[in-house]
Structure formats: structure tokens, C-alpha cells
Design a protein around this nucleic acid. Structure first.
Length: 290
DNA sequence: AACACGGGGTA
DNA sequence: TACCCAGTGTT
């Protein structure tokens, strides 16, 4: 394992970083938190417009905490995984009530908040507050696997290994570590992509262990069949949620039959949404939670 | 360790 | 049409 010169990453990032809202000077810690929640599951291009509307409407955690969940779910729209909108709302409530309406700086305090795990806690500590931590997402794991370890694909995610591996590469300097974390993610997102890496554009091209080794192929993945999306409960949940978002009044059984014809499946979908706090039933039908 | 969880994009 | 993307929480 050759040491990686951090300047290769930070210099490239300074010259090639995409212009994104959360990279603007003065972008708030709260804005960074909201952006990280949205980016957990959704591509940059889909997040940007929703994020900007969201922050105009709810500029601080207390503003979001005061909003009814139904409005939060409508604003989340088609970003996907609507449970995360609820987690963000709960997170805002906790910050407003227990942290004086200020986004915590400490990783352990962040990890204790709803919807924040290993990645998001460190991303906020680093990008919102400038603290020094390894930030490891799937892009970083792929870049480290290739450039440092010389293998095509990273092993299964494991914080016990992944965090020390990134820590070992991280520069000490406060500004440089921030640019290094952001730069490694950016390289993974736009250059060292999973399927068709653009090695001729890569700032690590001259030192990449995988490239230098002649691009050894990945180990054969264990045969494992993936669930199809078409017709899945996931797809049906999404369609029911779209109906609820679109309606000002409770949605009755008749309309839901058109979305999920099978009575057993329909009952299962609605029970799941109710259990997750995404839908509520009253005498007139189903609504978003008030 | 495996699964559940949306929705859109690419080959 | 088939496959890919990706972090958190639960089991």
C-alpha cells in the first residue's frame, strides 16, 4: 500500500468540484444536515431543487419541527424513502428541544439523533463544522479499494475497517482534511465510478494501485438474486403515498382499490404505512399523518 | 449478516 | 428489459 499524497486529491478538488448549494460559502449547518438526509438515497440533480425550497420554507430546525408531518411529507415529494422525511422531522424536533436549535458538532451526539448513522454524523461534523474525521461513503470505499488496496471492488461495508483505512490517509491540516474528504467522495462520484471509471481524467491515475496492477478483475460475486421492483410492496407503498400526498381529504377504499386491487396486499401495504407513521386512518379513509 | 425501504437513470 | 444506485434501522 503506497501512501497517497493528499494534495493530489485536494488540488484536483479545488479545480474540479461541482458547484453545489452545500458548497457555497455561508451555507448553514442546518442546510448541510438537510442536504445529507436527502443525499442518503437520492441523486444530486433530484435533491437540489427540493433542498432549496425546503430551506426557504424551514430555515432552522425549529421551523421544521413546527410543521405538521403531512406538509413535511408533501414537501419531500418523490425523493423516495419517505420514512427519512419523518426522521428528518424528528431530528429537527430533537435539535430544537435538546440542542438549543443548533446542529450538534460532536459525532456521538449526532449519532444519537434519528436518521443519522456513521456516514451522516461524520459528514455533518466535517462539512458543517470543520472537525477532523474520516467520512466514508460508498464512493470513498471504492476509491480506497482501487487506488490504495489495488482491488476492483471494496469488501462489504465495515466501519471497523473502513474508518481506520480512511483515517490513515487523512491529512492533519483542518482545511485540507475537509477538502480531502470531499474530494475523495467527488472522485468516486464522477471519475472512479463503479462501472466505467474515467482513469484518464483521474488525479490518482499515476499512483492508483489497481491501475498499476493492470486492472485485476473483481472476485466472482456470490450468486444472489435481487428482488424485482415491479409489483413489489415497495412500489405499491410508493403509489399509495403518492395518492395520499395528492389529496386534501381522506382517501377512501374505492380509490385505494384502483392502486392496490388485491385486498390482502392492500391491507398489508396500509398496515405497513401506518406502522411507519406514514399514513393514518380515520372514519373517512386514509390520510398523511397530521 | 440479511433485509426493507422509492424512484429514476443507464446499458 | 435488466440492472444500478446507497445510508439507516430493524431483525
Amino acid at each position: 500500500m503506497t501512501a497517497l499524497d493528499p494534495a493530489l486529491v485536494t488540488d484536483w478538488f479545488a479545480a474540479h468540484a461541482r458547484d453545489l448549494p452545500w458548497r457555497r460559502p455561508g451555507f448553514s449547518a442546518w442546510g448541510t444536515l438537510v442536504s445529507e438526509f436527502m443525499l442518503q438515497q437520492t441523486q444530486v440533480a433530484r435533491v437540489v431543487p427540493i433542498l432549496e425550497d425546503w430551506l426557504r420554507r424551514w430555515p432552522t430546525p425549529a421551523d421544521l419541527a413546527a410543521a405538521p408531518p403531512a406538509e413535511v411529507l408533501r414537501a419531500w415529494g418523490r425523493l423516495g424513502y419517505p420514512r427519512r422525511a419523518l426522521a428528518l422531522h424528528a431530528c429537527a424536533t430533537a435539535i430544537a428541544e435538546r440542542h438549543g436549535n443548533r446542529v450538534p458538532e460532536d459525532v456521538d451526539e449526532l449519532l444519537a439523533l434519528p436518521g443519522i448513522g456513521d456516514y451522516t454524523a461524520r459528514a455533518i461534523a466535517v462539512f458543517a463544522h470543520g472537525h477532523r474525521h474520516p467520512v466514508v461513503d460508498t464512493n470513498v470505499r471504492r476509491v480506497v479499494a482501487r487506488a490504495v488496496q489495488g482491488v476492483a471492488q471494496p469488501a462489504a461495508p465495515n466501519a471497523r475497517r473502513d474508518l481506520p483505512a480512511m483515517e490513515a490517509l487523512l491529512p492533519d491540516d483542518r482545511a485540507a482534511q475537509r477538502a480531502f474528504n470531499a474530494g475523495m467522495m467527488e472522485i468516486g462520484a464522477v471519475v472512479c465510478t463503479a462501472r466505467a471509471p474515467r482513469c484518464d481524467e483521474c488525479p490518482l491515475g499515476a499512483v492508483c494501485a489497481w491501475r498499476l496492477a493492470g486492472y485485476p478483475p473483481p472476485d466472482a460475486p456470490p450468486a444472489r438474486r435481487k428482488p424485482r421492483f415491479e409489483g413489489s410492496d415497495r412500489q405499491l407503498r410508493g403509489r399509495v403515498m403518492a395518492e395520499l400526498r395528492a389529496s386534501d381529504v381522506p382517501v377512501g377504499e374505492t380509490e385505494l382499490v384502483a392502486v392496490v386491487p388485491d385486498p390482502g396486499v392492500r391491507a398489508r401495504i396500509l398496515a405497513g404505512l401506518e406502522r411507519d407513521g406514514l399514513a393514518a386512518r380515520d372514519d373517512d379513509g386514509w390520510s398523511l399523518p397530521s
